[in-house]
Nucleic acid binder design. Structure first.
Length: 735
DNA sequence: TGGGAGCTAGTAGCCATAGA
DNA sequence: TCTATGGCTACTAGCTCCCA
């Protein structure tokens, strides 16, 4: 004896319903709530859900359901609605939902009511797989309300609530695309409807009524699509594709950034579904949206077209790493304590089996990129992003918001000068308190540089000294910081050249051979890139009436050329130098000609050479560098003097007035000395002086008795004195 | 005329680098 | 340690162009 049963009968038994729904028996009530909510959301964005976990009610404000069709809609033996075979990035892609709902009601002895167009109907499923709709009450609201109970089964609302929660952003506004079907699936679509070819073609993106008519014409007037052979359907598919363009992934719609999630990333891609017996493959576009937020324990939820996927993605934490995996992908992330939501928008989601488990294999790479980026962004923003949708508070925001307060604190309410580092320690507590992260001095430095570039220098701030200035003839060396430069006075008619050197080490060599004195050339360094103090000093010297030429020497490498370039040109910290700075090198050509030791630059040091170089020079510096130190001292002196001679404007010779004044001053000085000497000799100066000292001897001895005591008393009264000052006062008193 | 595509410029945060 | 700048990556805003 043979027993047979029709496939739809699997819907009406709780033990076989999982085969058709794809979820385990205990998950059926949860799925029923989700399917009803998904259908409501596909009709309208205005959806309300409520219930007490024994009853579930969903309402939407759509146009309502034709009462004549209610019975058929909730029949478990009806075939899949052909419109559901059209591939679109919407929730109810499988068209199975209402059959699962009706089946669950039968299987649990539950109740199902649909209220629409003025009446409340009870749906009564029949043994033959059909359903009847009987009026049981009046209904005075718009739209459609569906109420369901499943006997004693507890109805979990989680998926239904999530479907509403993630129903945000934009939707796909177009029609299905011919590129989303391969030869076989397009043929199946044509077979599933008794519409005409033209009516089917009109359903496709890019095929207006006129175009549809043109495409359908060659298949015969009023020809039914299900009459087409496989070859004809392939030909039709090709014709529709010729008339339309592929739909880009960005058009598919998105949830977009959501309140309550601290990071978001969206990536897109396409995957192909190859045809086995035809010529046309499907190209399915998709977008992956990933949302993250802090959680006590990591979890990962999957959504397909904004609706919870009944087969989720799994997450587990181990060794400070998070592993998330699903069918076809496996990702490891350096992060814990994060809730991840992955939404995939696509007109077609491949499934692994009849259990409706999504097959992510074809989109695994894009899912990994989007997830990694979202998690990285989450880590960056961690703890600093507001959940109310306002702009994320950055370190820069906090630093600048509290800058005035920090300046006030660092300056003692405007009384004292303060260093940049002191200011950093003024804003640091605000950043730590408001963002929970420790700011770096480097980042603060950049924020302040940008701020000062826009608003001008902060009043009272100074930068610590770095580098020095050696002045010829006076032999003095002063440290170069913004404070020392502010107080600097150029000695008149002392030097007419300044040589900026990348390294301070060459100062001693040049001083040793009297280079600064022979050339009237001051030596200046900022030890590497010129500090703003160095630039301020050059600007100050350039403003003087006295002539000035500024030279620069640097290593023959990419950094050296940028050191020269940034000394002359505008940077964030300072504008361009008004004084023209002459680049003396070392340049690649002369380094090679001099036969200097060529080194290979560190490949890890990624840096661009200066713009002023020729392409050949830039190319050479990519793989070569020569330090100034590669020269011996005689070589260096010889090279520098040779270079200086090209631009040398001679030694300092002041204008006539200054020369005459100097001559007169010197004549007066020497004359004064000569006259003083003569008068002293004539008046027996030395003898008178000796006698005077002898006469004061007793007074000296008297003071010597309490000398130490008096010095201590005086120092206590005026601590700024040195011990010699009270002695000087006592001596004056004796004399 | 509106919306999408594509491009550029700018912002932000962090890291790397120079020099002694 | 100090000063300084550039590179990289991710993202956003604004502009122009093109097409339906």
């Amino acid at each position: 004896m043979n027993f047979t049963r029709e496939d739809w009968t699997l819907f009406r038994n709780m033990d076989t319903l999982p085969q058709k729904s794809g979820v385990a028996k205990h998950g059926i009530p949860k799925l029923v709530a989700k399917e009803l909510t998904d259908n409501a959301l596909d009709i309208s964005d205005k959806v309300e859900i409520e219930g007490n976990y024994r009853n579930f009610t969903v309402w939407n404000d759509g146009d309502g359901i034709d009462p004549e069709k209610l019975g058929e809609l909730f029949s478990i033996n009806r075939p899949m609605v052909s419109s559901k075979l059209l591939r679109l990035p919407t929730r109810g892609a499988l068209g199975n939902g209402l059959r699962v709902v009706a089946g669950a009601v039968i299987a649990t002895g539950g109740k199902l009511y649909v209220s629409t167009h003025g009446h409340k109907y009870e749906i009564l499923p029949q043994d033959n797989g059909t359903s009847d709709a009987i009026v049981v009450d009046e209904y005075d609201r718009t739209g459609t309300k569906i109420e369901v109970s499943l006997g004693d089964e507890y109805i979990d609302f989680k998926w239904a609530e999530d479907a509403v929660k993630f129903n945000k952003g934009t939707k796909y506004k177009g029609k299905t695309s011919a590129y989303w079907y391969n030869s076989e699936t397009f043929f199946e679509l044509l077979q599933a409807t008794d519409s005409t070819v033209r009516e089917v073609v009109e359903q496709f993106d890019g095929c207006s009524s006129t175009k549809a008519g043109k495409i359908a014409r060659e298949y015969g007037r009023n020809r039914k699509s299900n009459e087409l052979s496989f070859d004809e359907s392939e030909q039709l598919l090709n014709s529709i594709r010729q008339e339309s363009r592929p739909v880009k992934a960005a058009r598919l719609g998105e949830i977009g950034e959501l309140e309550g999630y601290s990071s978001y990333n969206k990536q897109s891609g396409t995957f192909a579904l190859e045809s086995t017996k035809g010529n046309y493959n499907a190209k399915i576009p998709f977008t992956v949206e990933v949302f993250t937020k802090e959680a006590d324990k990591s979890s990962c939820q999957a959504l397909i077209n904004k609706s919870p996927s009944i087969k989720g993605i799994h997450a587990s934490e181990s060794n400070k790493k998070l592993n998330i995996w699903g069918s076809g992908f496996d990702i490891y992330l350096k992060c814990t304590g994060v809730e991840i939501v992955i939404n995939i928008n696509t007109p077609y989601m491949p499934i692994t089996n009849d259990g409706k488990e999504p097959n992510y294999r074809l989109m695994a790479e894009v899912i990994e990129i989007a997830t990694t980026k979202a998690v990285n962004s989450y880590k960056r923003n961690s703890g600093s992003k507001p959940t109310d949708g306002s702009k994320r508070l950055t370190q820069k925001d906090v630093m600048l918001n509290n800058l005035n307060e920090a300046v006030k604190k660092a300056s003692g309410d405007g009384t004292y000068r303060f260093s940049q580092r002191q200011l950093f320690y003024g804003v640091r507590p605000y950043v730590m308190e408001q963002l929970g992260i420790e700011p770096t001095y480097e980042n603060f430095n950049k924020v302040i540089t940008d701020y000062e570039a826009e608003h001008g220098d902060i009043e009272g701030i100074y930068r610590d000294s770095r580098g020095s200035l050696y002045t010829p003839h006076s032999g003095t060396t002063i440290p170069i910081g913004t404070l020392s430069v502010e107080n600097y006075q150029r000695p008149e008619w002392t030097f007419n050249k300044v040589l900026y050197i990348e390294k301070e080490g060459f100062f001693e060599i040049l001083k040793d051979v009297k280079f600064p004195e022979r050339y009237d050339c001051a030596l200046l360094t900022g030890k590497g890139y010129a500090s703003r103090a160095v630039k301020d000093l050059i600007d100050y010297l350039g403003e003087s009436q006295e002539e000035l030429t500024v030279f620069c020497i640097h290593d023959c490498d990419k950094a050296g050329t940028v050191i020269y370039e940034t000394l002359q040109q505008k940077t964030k910290s300072r504008g361009e130098r008004k004084v023209n700075i002459i680049d003396l090198g070392l340049n690649p050509k002369e380094a090679i000609e001099m036969g200097l030791d060529v080194e290979k630059p560190d490949k890890k040091k990624k840096m661009k050479a200066a713009d002023y170089l020729t392409p050949e020079e830039k190319a050479w510096l990519e793989t070569n560098r020569v330090e100034l130190n590669a020269m011996t001292t005689p070589q260096f002196i010889d090279w520098l003097e040779r270079k200086m001679h090209e631009y040398d404007n001679g030694k300092v010779v002041p204008v006539d007035e200054v020369l005459k004044d100097e001559l007169l001053n010197k004549v007066r000085y020497f004359t004064k000395s000569k006259v003083r000497e003569r008068i002293l000799q004539e008046n027996n100066y030395e003898k008178q002086y000796q006698q005077e000292v002898i006469s004061l001897q007793s007074k000296i001895e008297e003071k010597e008795l309490r000398l130490k005591e008096m010095v201590i008393e005086s120092l206590a009264a005026s601590p700024e004195q040195i011990w010699k000052q009270p002695i000087e006062s006592i001596a004056k008193e004796i004399v």
